[in-house]
Design a protein around this nucleic acid. Structure first.
Lengths: 252, 252
DNA sequence: CGTGCGGTTGATCCGAGTCAAGCCAAGTGG
DNA sequence: CCACTTGGCTTGACTCGGATCAACCGCACG
């Protein structure tokens, strides 16, 4: 736990002006209802690679991602790591209602969080059905996305995985000033996410570039040249047009 | 008052004597609270292979598994199927709070369900915080188990997957009269669950048998000879002793 | 007595992992 | 300012595990 890192320009701590409020579980509550929650919160900043929860360690906090990207990961006995989900701004992280955290949480980009002590959060949730409902919705959503990722890991080839990943990035990734798509992860992390080795990630990426489907002007930048081709390669990911439910996200 | 479907040996429809009540979300409610829920329920029996929910189709019902085993599955464009989770007796199935079902549900063994219309279930849940809380707990649990399965599919070798599967079966599978462990799935379904081809499943199984770790007296029966060896092969699956939270299950 | 289906076994192929260099850009210290 | 290091990325050669294709077995069925 990184102590007092609140130097420099502090994030606006006011819930009313919070950029992610509507997209997060806080959106389920009115400002009045939110106040008691806000008083027990603290704001924390994480540098790239910093971890705030460890698989197997006591689950002590629940947090909302305000800015940045957080990876949920599991460790294999041999030390390899598997990223089982990503949390974007607005997503809740941490394991409520369990004594032990079942996965680790690591900042992939510089991150700002609203952190709540788990016990206090749970007490508050118990007293506030709309909040619990919001948490439930988010969990069900994450579960569905995780199922799709499972399908990907179990059955898709490396090119399919990469193509799916790139399309997801294009759909919800941030743009660089130059209008390109930012790749917020390093090759290793992409590998951890897709269940591939870094070499395979690199090779497949370049193959797509050589085929003209994408451009890679820098190692962390992406140009989409032919999304249709990628979609064709990605192939079987459910119905191509499932709006169905609310805010669709990249991956669990 | 439930409609009159009581032909043949009816399942005891009384919630008070329900075998799975405590293990299910119903356990969160008193008999008095449960009554209004019970009146809108209907009991349904499914034969092996029968499906009650289709991926992409409207989500119309929520159900509790009273007996049997139900698979949650996803379809790939090329027709292959991936089982992303199993629901045992006591588990809830169906997709609440979404218009579209995000996976299919198919009976793996003969199954008995308590079925609720989704709309009615949601209305009831909205009015009953303890029920919503129970649903939330179950979802969080399923999510954690799904994460572990993801890890398995992404990183483990075929022998590791089979060993993990067998250990899980031994842990929670039903026994045959002869004291052996029942394998409720066919080879194809095991393959769908573990992301392997039937041939690989068959080969690995026989290899374990030849090595003396297990016995396979019938194709649907299993004898555990050397669980320690299997555990060693399965290798990295979290801490071997994570009691941590309540009712531990085989897989999501 | 065929017929069909689930399971087993064998032969072959291919894709992704692994090992091993090499590349390039960004530090870092002399 | 330049030599040297460092870490992330790329590329190549090789290996191997699991998918695929193809028989084949055995049992339950009509």
């Amino acid at each position: 736990m990184a102590p007092h890192l609140r130097q420099q320009p502090p994030v606006r701590e006011d819930c009313d002006t919070c950029a992610v409020r509507d997209g997060s579980i806080c959106g389920a509550l009115t400002t009045g209802q939110l106040m008691p929650l806000a008083t027990m919160r603290r704001i924390e900043r994480l540098g790239v690679g910093e971890t705030i929860a460890w698989e197997g360690a006591p689950s002590v906090m629940i947090a909302i991602v305000r800015q940045g990207l957080v990876g949920r990961s599991l460790l294999l006995a041999d030390g390899r790591e598997q990223v089982v989900g990503l949390a974007f701004a607005g997503d809740m992280v941490g394991r409520p209602f369990a004594a032990i955290s079942d996965h680790s949480l690591t900042a992939i980009t510089p991150t700002v969080l609203c952190v709540f002590p788990r016990a206090a959060f749970e007490r508050f949730a118990a007293a506030s059905p709309p909040l619990e409902h919001a948490v439930l919705l988010q969990s069900l959503d994450a579960l569905a996305r995780t199922h799709r990722n499972m399908l990907m890991l179990a059955r898709m080839s490396a090119p399919q995985r990469i193509a799916t990943f790139l399309l997801d990035l294009a759909e919800r990734g941030d743009r660089t000033p130059a209008g390109h798509i930012a790749i917020p992860l390093g090759r290793q992390q992409i590998g951890d996410l897709l269940g591939l080795s870094i070499e395979t990630v690199s090779r497949r990426l370049r193959a797509f570039e050589r085929a003209g489907h994408i451009g890679l002007p820098g190692q962390r930048t992406l140009e989409m040249h032919d999304p249709t081709a990628l979609a064709a390669i990605a192939g079987g990911r459910g119905t191509p047009s499932p709006p169905a439910d609310g805010r669709r996200q990249g991956m669990a």
